[in-house]
Design a protein around this nucleic acid. Structure first.
Lengths: 304, 304
DNA sequence: ACATTGCTGAAGAGAATATTACAAAAGTTC
DNA sequence: GAACTTTTGTAATATTCTCTTCAGCAATGT
């Protein structure tokens, strides 16, 4: 079993600091682990003994042992047939001209795959628990674009628990919200690169008030990560001047899925039923269609 | 210049022992050089000082310096998209119990792949043209969840053309907007299943006023498709009581990419520059971090 | 045959790194 | 809110690694 799988599916419970290390390691796997233990520690913002402890927790004799295993992985991967193909990759002409949209979709797909391999299950579990165990309010906040993601998550969460509050546009007055927040509350903040000053400032103020913080950001990490309780990262770079948010959306949906899974059966069933009913209600709305088309699965585009 | 090229095309004359080292290094590049100097020496059947001398001969300050350079190579090679795909491999029966989030992500990934193959390029091109050729206003509207996607698209479009208007919550008063709309205008509407009555109604009224309609919906088609000018579909079903919106997000981003691609160069460059500048501005925000590590590409977070 | 030059490895000094021990801080539980 | 457990970082220690010095060795030229 290679180290990546150990980190992703490992049955070991990780402490917050250890989780940060794992995150760094997975984001830049395995290179991040091939330097010294101290360099890895610094990158993860923890101390070197913590790195060593993690190595031992994983069953290695010490950090060098883990490193040797990583090296074996590198070797294996660099000799894989895929890499040979990679060497002579033509780079596709799809891009430049006409097929921009298709090229873009491909690029998003590979981005999503990266997301898949760089966030361990434990992070989702923690996020789910963090949200559901919070006794006080849950406040959501996002940046210029990411505020829409915050909104989505808020819309979902509303169905699971009370006291959800989405701060859409961050005006000066909105800072007043902070007055009512304390250590029993949770701030979920989305801050992807070109980290917004006002968002960071808000989070900082919240942190000062001991509000717990769940941060969604990119692998470069928003400054907020320094005082967040849990940070979930997600790759965002695609072949476009803009970053993609598709993976981020998938990520919050995954958190929702995790919450759903960790609920007691009765609760979950109630919600599923609720959703079922809504679906049927809407279906009856346009029965007409359903009667005409037996297999709508591939009907895609019509026009006039 | 990477180390391999230095070894291959380097203009340095090598002693026999050094040549053996180079050979080993090239045979198993770069893994052979990532351990200790002594281990490499042993593999080449020479002594460690010889390895050190070689490193210096190549212009490095010492063996660790050479090693750092090798690491950079690894990173570059391992981060190619192709290898990411290979690394993912689902395996595992993660599903049912604990791994809900991971299972969900996989499911989204396959959903996205489906999206990739089910919308022809032509649709994106038409959508792009429709948006950019509209002389009048562009109004965006979505349902309970999809209104966030509408918001995102609106946020992007605002940068490309004037007269963008996002109707967030659909109140009775908002219908008044219709008064000002006519056949020179465009309504972009998102309506995924459990098609919302009010959204459908609004679209219907718009259609009656000859407003052109661009519809984003699922393969089962919202009733709006009957009077829309162009319909883009996108699979949404995943293993969860809810539907995913990740692919929909990817889709609108793809439309943006297409718009960007079909712009005249000057316009596009202006926008790309704008984005560049924003990015740099935010980068300088945490320069402090980047200075510490030699390889900032992934250097990400330090603290305390 | 001898001297010169350059290559190489052994050994050890010095530096960097990993690890342990301990104490402070944070979180948890009653 | 106090006692407990857990987690984390600091500082000291132990280990490992790099690199320098030097002496032996081989090749080449005189």
């Amino acid at each position: 079993m290679n180290v990546r799988d150990m980190l992703l599916h490992g049955a070991i419970s990780l402490t917050p600091s250890e989780e940060r290390i794992v995150q760094v390691l997975l984001t830049d796997y395995p290179a991040a682990g091939l330097g010294t233990a101290t360099s890895l520690a610094k990158r993860a913002g923890v101390s070197d003994p913590t790195v060593v402890r993690l190595a031992m927790k994983l069953g290695f004799e010490g950090f060098p042992a883990l490193q040797r295993r990583l090296l074996a992985d590198v070797e294996a991967r660099l000799h894989s047939p895929l890499l040979m193909m990679e060497a002579k990759r033509p780079d596709m002409g799809t891009d430049s001209e006409q097929g921009a949209a298709i090229a873009y979709m491909h690029s998003v797909a590979s981005n999503l795959n990266k997301a898949l391999t760089s966030t361990p299950l434990a992070s989702y579990q923690r996020a789910a628990r963090l949200v559901m165990d919070t006794k006080g309010k849950v406040v959501l906040l996002g940046g210029r674009y990411s505020r829409f993601i915050a909104g989505m998550l808020a819309a979902y969460l509303l169905q699971f628990r009370p006291d959800i509050m989405h701060i859409d546009a961050l005006s000066a007055q909105k800072t007043d919200v902070l007055v009512d927040l304390g250590k029993r509350d949770l701030l979920i903040v989305f801050d992807y690169r070109r980290y917004q000053l006002d968002v960071v400032a808000f989070a900082q103020l919240a942190a000062a008030r001991r509000v717990r913080i769940l941060l969604f950001t990119d692998p470069w990490l928003s400054p907020i990560s320094e005082f967040s309780e849990l940070t979930l990262t997600c790759p965002i770079e695609v072949n476009s001047p803009y970053d993609t948010m598709a993976s981020s959306v998938a990520q919050i949906e995954a958190v929702i899925a995790q919450i759903l899974a960790s609920m007691e059966k009765p609760t979950r069933e109630r919600i599923e039923e609720l959703e079922e009913i809504r679906l049927q209600a809407s279906a009856s709305l346009d029965n007409a269609h359903l009667l005409e088309d037996e297999k709508p699965a591939l009907a895609s585009m019509t026009s006039k």
